[in-house]
Simulated assay, not measured.
Amino acid sequence: MKTALICGIGGQDGGYLAALLLEKGYRVFGTSRDAQSNGFSNLRRLGIQDRVTVITMAPDDFRSVLGAVVQSEATEIYALAGQSSVGLSFELPVETLQSIVFGTLNLLEAIRFTGRAIKLYHAGSSECFGDLNGCRATEATPFWPRSPYGVAKTSAHLLVANYREAYGIFACTGILFNHESPHRPRRFVTSKIAAAARRIATGDSAPLILGRLDIVRDWGWAPEFVEAMWQMLQQDVPDDYIVATGQSHSLEAFVAAAFDSVGLDWRDHVRTDPGLIRPTDLARSAADPSHAAERLGWRAQTMMPEVARRMTAAAEVE
């Protein structure tokens, strides 16, 4: 039986990945900074909480990380932990870099220290590329991050590449573009939009307040993206892969799709506030996921309009 350690199992991707691996017959361990007090609501919603063994682990503490790796006896490690909000990284830059960079470094060091044949998946990000000025990113596109989150993910990406080359560790980075689901916290704009559309559809008249509507992103469906993570670690040779739909849309188009799914015209219910605009932001993000299609056989099936519809249908009205 294969054993997986999912660092950051309490997040959106961690829950869906755990469900996928359990379905494939894995023994699954998951980490949280405080496993005893974490309610793991995502695992409960998926009906798998009692099938996962949870471990308390602080990603920026090497002894804690090493203990989790040894205790789980994992053959595959999925590094998903860390501060995951681009917007919040401007307010918490130190926490963002520590949790992502040192968390990744400690996992790499733990694998090197134990000498075990462990495969590592590292969750990279499209934020590493910065603003592409209309070009579609490939795995060879240079990085130019424009947020503390992007800087942290870029540093972690380079650490993974360095350890793979220097020590022969089987380590892959999935350069994931935006991927959403009903398990996204409300601080993410897509979740905020979906919840507002449902709320207004029930008769609430308070408008939805957003920042820029002209930003362009590649939005996919998170449950499909975790399949690509798993597939990377089933290859004979480690490599890095862009994981995306290959289609980009404006935030305005996402808003329109969400409101349309509940029979509303978004223009009647949405206002903009310059105070919500980030210090720096990417105008356009676009991806070429052909490498993953060719090597992994992975292709996104769910595109943005359906993502928006599913999130809105599942959104809870407060």
Rank of each mutant, 00 (worst) to 15 (best):
K2C: 01
A4C: 09
A4M: 09
L5M: 06
L5I: 06
G10H: 06
G11F: 12
Y16F: 15
L17I: 12
A18V: 02
G30M: 09
T31D: 12
S32N: 15
R33K: 11
D34R: 13
S37H: 14
N38E: 13
G39C: 02
N42Q: 07
L46K: 10
G47M: 11
G47P: 08
R51A: 13
M57D: 03
R63G: 14
R63D: 15
S64A: 08
V70S: 06
Q71R: 10
A79M: 12
A79W: 00
L80S: 00
Q83V: 01
Q83I: 00
G87P: 00
L88Y: 05
S89M: 01
F90A: 03
P93Q: 04
E95D: 14
S99P: 05
F102G: 00
L105C: 03
N106T: 04
L108I: 02
L108E: 04
A110G: 06
T114E: 08
R116V: 02
A117F: 03
A123Y: 00
A123E: 08
G124M: 03
S125L: 03
S125H: 03
S125E: 01
E127W: 04
D131P: 11
L132D: 05
N133M: 11
T138F: 10
E139A: 05
A140L: 14
T141F: 10
T141A: 03
T141N: 07
F143H: 15
K153T: 02
S155Y: 09
L158Q: 15
V160Y: 08
N162K: 14
Y163V: 08
A166I: 04
A171M: 10
H179G: 11
R184V: 06
V189N: 03
K192L: 14
A194L: 09
A195D: 01
A196L: 07
A197C: 08
A197M: 10
A197V: 10
I200V: 11
A201H: 13
G203Q: 07
D204Y: 07
A206E: 13
L208W: 05
L208D: 05
L208I: 07
L208M: 06
L213S: 07
I215V: 14
W219K: 00
G220E: 02
A222I: 07
P223N: 07
V226I: 15
A228F: 01
M229C: 14
M229G: 02
M229W: 13
L233K: 07
Q235S: 10
D236T: 15
V237S: 13
D240W: 09
D240Q: 07
G246I: 02
S248I: 02
S250K: 08
L251E: 06
E252I: 00
F254E: 04
A258D: 01
A258H: 09
D260V: 02
D260C: 12
V262W: 13
W266D: 01
H269E: 01
R271F: 01
T272V: 13
T272A: 03
D273Y: 07
L276H: 04
T280L: 11
D281T: 11
A286P: 00
A287E: 01
A287G: 05
S290E: 08
A292H: 03
A292Q: 03
E294Q: 14
Q301R: 14
V307H: 02
A308Q: 04
E316M: 12
V317R: 05
